[in-house]
Amino acid sequence: MGGIVHNTAGFFIKIFVFQWDFALFLLNSVTPSHKEGQVVPKGCPGHNLSWPEYVPPKDGDSRSACPMLNAMANHGILPHDGKNITFKELNQRIRETFNFAPSFCFFVPKFAADFLNRSYWKDTFDLEEISLHNAIEHDASLTRQDAALVPDQGKPDLKLVHDLLAEATGKMPDGSARLTIPDLSRALSKRRVDARKTNKDYSESFFHNMFGSSNSSTMLTLFGGAIDDLTPMLTEERFSEHWEPRVRSKFGLTMAKFNFTVLPVERGVDTKKIEKEQAATAAATETAS
C-alpha cells in the first residue's frame, strides 16, 4: 500500500513540475533577460564574472561522472570534499551557478534522490554516489570510459575529451572554435559505436540515449559550444576566467526550452553511418597494405 501511495505522489509531483516548467518557459518569453555579467545572482559565487579559487580534488574527495558538479566542488561552491551534500542544497547551488530554471533544479536532484532511495527533503549524498550506473551515469559518455571498464567515474578520460573537442566545426563571433548540434550528434554516434565494440557489458536504451544527449546538450546551451570555455571545464573541471552561463533568461533554462536542443542532437545521431565509414576506412587500409 505504501508503494502505491509513493508512486501516486511521485506521479502528481512530476505533473506539477512539468506544468511549472512550462509556465516559466512562457514567462521567459515576455520578461527581459539578465544583463551580461549579472546572470549569477548578486552575492553568489560567479556574480559579475568572478569565480572562487579553483582547487583540484585531493585523495579521498568524492567526485561524480558530471564535470559541472565536480567543477562546483573544485571551486568550493559545493563542499570541496564532495560529501554530505543535501539534495535541497544541490538544487539551490545549481540554480545560482548555471541559471537552470527552478523547475529543472528541483526535478534532477529529486530524480537523483529517488534512484538512491533517499528523501529529497532531509537526506544527503556524496558526489560519487550519483554515478550509479544506468541512473544518470550511462555507457557511451563523451567524457568518461564506460563504468564496466573504468569503475571510478570521478575523473575525465582526456583522450575522449580531446576527441570530442576536435569535432568542433563552428565558429564563435570572435572566430574561435565552437561545437554545433551536428558536431555533438556525430560525437555521440562515434562513442556509441566504439563503446559497443569495447564494452562487452554495454547497455543502451531510449532513456539512456536521451539522457546522454541531454547531458551533452548543456555544452551547447550553457556554454554556447565555446571550445575555449569547454576545454577547462571538461579537462580540469573548472570554470574559465570570466565565464558565465550563456542562458540569460530571467527564469533560467527550462526543460521545455532545453528540449529544443536535446531533440535535434539525438535525432542527428547516426551510428549506422559511422559504422559504414569505419568499415570503409578499414577496407581501404587493408587494400593499401
Rank of each mutant, 00 (worst) to 15 (best):
T8H: 02
T8S: 06
K14W: 01
I15Y: 03
V17I: 13
F22I: 00
A23E: 05
A23T: 12
A23W: 04
L26T: 06
S29K: 09
S29V: 01
T31F: 10
H34E: 07
G37N: 13
P41V: 11
P41E: 13
C44F: 14
P45T: 03
E53C: 05
Y54F: 12
D61S: 12
A65P: 14
C66I: 14
P67K: 05
L69Y: 10
A73D: 05
N74S: 15
P79H: 07
D81I: 09
N84M: 08
I85P: 01
L90Y: 06
L90N: 03
Q92W: 11
Q92V: 13
T97V: 13
T97I: 07
F98I: 00
P102D: 09
F106I: 02
P109F: 00
K110D: 00
D114Y: 02
N117Q: 04
S119A: 07
Y120R: 00
W121N: 00
F125S: 02
D126S: 09
E128H: 09
I130Y: 00
A135M: 08
A135Y: 04
E137P: 10
H138C: 04
L142T: 03
T143A: 08
T143W: 14
A147Q: 12
V150I: 05
V150N: 08
P151F: 00
G154D: 04
H162Y: 03
L165R: 01
G170V: 02
K171Q: 04
M172Y: 10
P173A: 14
D174K: 13
S176F: 01
T180F: 02
S185I: 09
A187Y: 04
K190T: 07
D194Q: 13
D194N: 09
D194T: 06
A195H: 01
K197A: 04
Y202S: 00
S203Y: 14
S205W: 07
H208K: 11
H208W: 12
F211L: 15
G212A: 11
S214Y: 15
N215Q: 15
M219N: 08
L220K: 07
L222E: 15
D228F: 13
T231A: 15
T231C: 10
E236Q: 15
S249Y: 07
S249G: 03
G252K: 05
F258G: 08
N259F: 14
G268I: 09
I274S: 01
A279C: 10
T281S: 11
A284G: 13
T285V: 11
T287D: 14
